[in-house]
Write a protein that binds this DNA or RNA. Structure first.
Lengths: 248, 248
DNA sequence: CGGGGGGTTGATCTCCTTCAATCAACGTGG
DNA sequence: CCACGTTGATTGAAGGAGATCAACCCCCCG
């Protein structure tokens, strides 16, 4: 349960803000009780590393609050973001020893962690967990494939529009069901992080955001506060079907 | 079991060439028997569509022999490959109605199919299948993330080198354990398909392959038959750690 | 007040795309 | 058997989208 400053004020699963979306979403109350025995919370400050690529991973867990990124880095320093971790997203791969990516907190972050071994054992015995994890992994794979189209084939302008529309849609899905007037949200990423997400330089990100603003596709208040007057227009700019590909 | 022309000559799971790698890898013999009751084979000619994006999917299945691609297409015709399906790879997503991508056979293809409903029911009752599918999905997700780095941050030359090294390594892992002399393999993709894989134009692909050949990184016999005299060199060109990031 | 992080904007350069010509291999029908 | 069309691939010339290098702004904080 969160108070208005996003502090976790209770550690009981029944109160948990991500109870219905995380790996544990399908668990019955007795299963939750057993999870509760092996779980613990960890906090990370904005900017700090949660996991270093190559390090031994001895826990897995869920993002409870805050935002983290999954990034890959080449020897010469080029980096590419490969995952954006939001509340309820799962971190770590059961069955693997070492971490494959850097995980960095971009805001203050709270994680609900499980030591890897006990979690793996519990997963063996608890189909509800394994099934939910499969479902979440398939969703991530779909997101990764969408992202590959963005990286491989879209122009800089389309890339920015795509990112904005992803953030806008997600934000709308988390915050209660506003009817569709103008969408308003805050960018959770710096220009540099957006560039790492989209395979661009931060200068190009800045220019394209300015261009979208100039063209009335978005409105900006400060650097981070965005208003989208017309979501359909934004999705056109993103090169997406504006009728939102409805897949069940 | 395959004869030298890649025809499936037996439909018994115990003889199946992908028995130990596909979704069914972990199944006990009684589980295989039940799978055998709901499975059927389908063949597709090179170039034909296995699945059309948006269509209703009523089966899932495994590639038995041949190669297929998973692609996404934008309204204006730009396409991006988002998956390369090799023998033992799984096609389709349990729990989803419509297909999200086009699946196209690039060679003659044999699939081992299951009607979706019965397979989903069986998955519920058979943890061996669900666990194996989770494992395979996690591997695909890793591959997709590797691919995202390639698409977002590598140069055309590095992209080609990356693709060649991926194909070379996979080929080495399928064919018996040759010691490390020069690697030899055939490209399973046209220049155009490679371009769709890498987010390039086919002209750029052609130029960069010529350049790698000119520089002695690879040797070409015809258009498709490749020899890699020095794998370490190729991986340097790909911008990868040549000591091959060993993750357990 | 100075300094640093995040952001914007400008000028130039370059790598890749685009458009186009050419080629080799292959099949087909007259 | 040869002319013809087709398909996949190579190569060249020209142009452009985005990278690179650099100056500068804004705002917060010590």
């Amino acid at each position: 349960m969160l108070n208005e400053k996003n502090f976790v004020v209770s550690h009981e699963c029944s109160d948990c803000p991500i109870r219905h979306r995380a790996v544990c979403a399908r668990c019955e109350s007795d299963e939750l009780t057993r999870l509760e025995e092996i779980k613990y919370y960890r906090k990370f400050e904005a900017g700090s590393h949660v996991i270093w690529s190559g390090d031994r991973m001895d826990f897995v867990g869920s993002v409870v609050s805050g935002i983290a990124t999954l990034t890959q880095t080449m020897e010469d320093g080029r980096t590419q973001m490969v995952g954006l971790l939001l509340p309820s997203d799962f971190v770590g791969r059961p069955g693997r020893e070492g971490a494959a990516y850097d995980v960095v907190a971009t805001t203050d972050l709270t994680m609900c962690c499980f030591r890897k071994k006990p979690f793996e054992e519990m997963m063996q015995r608890t189909p509800h967990i394994a099934h939910r994890l499969l479902e979440m992994t398939l969703d991530e794979l779909d997101a990764a494939r969408e992202w590959m189209l963005v990286l491989g084939r879209k122009t800089a302008r389309e890339k920015i529009a795509s990112l904005l529309s992803i953030i806008a849609r997600r934000d709308a899905s988390i915050h209660p069901g506003k009817v569709d007037g103008p969408l308003v949200f805050d960018l959770p990423l710096t220009r540099e992080a957006m560039a790492d997400y989209l395979g661009l330089t931060l200068e190009t990100v800045s220019r394209q955001i300015s261009a979208l603003k100039r063209d009335g596709v978005i409105e900006l208040e400060g650097k981070r506060h965005v208003t989208v007057p017309n979501m359909g227009r934004l999705m056109e700019e993103a090169g997406d079907d504006s009728d939102g590909g409805m897949l069940v």
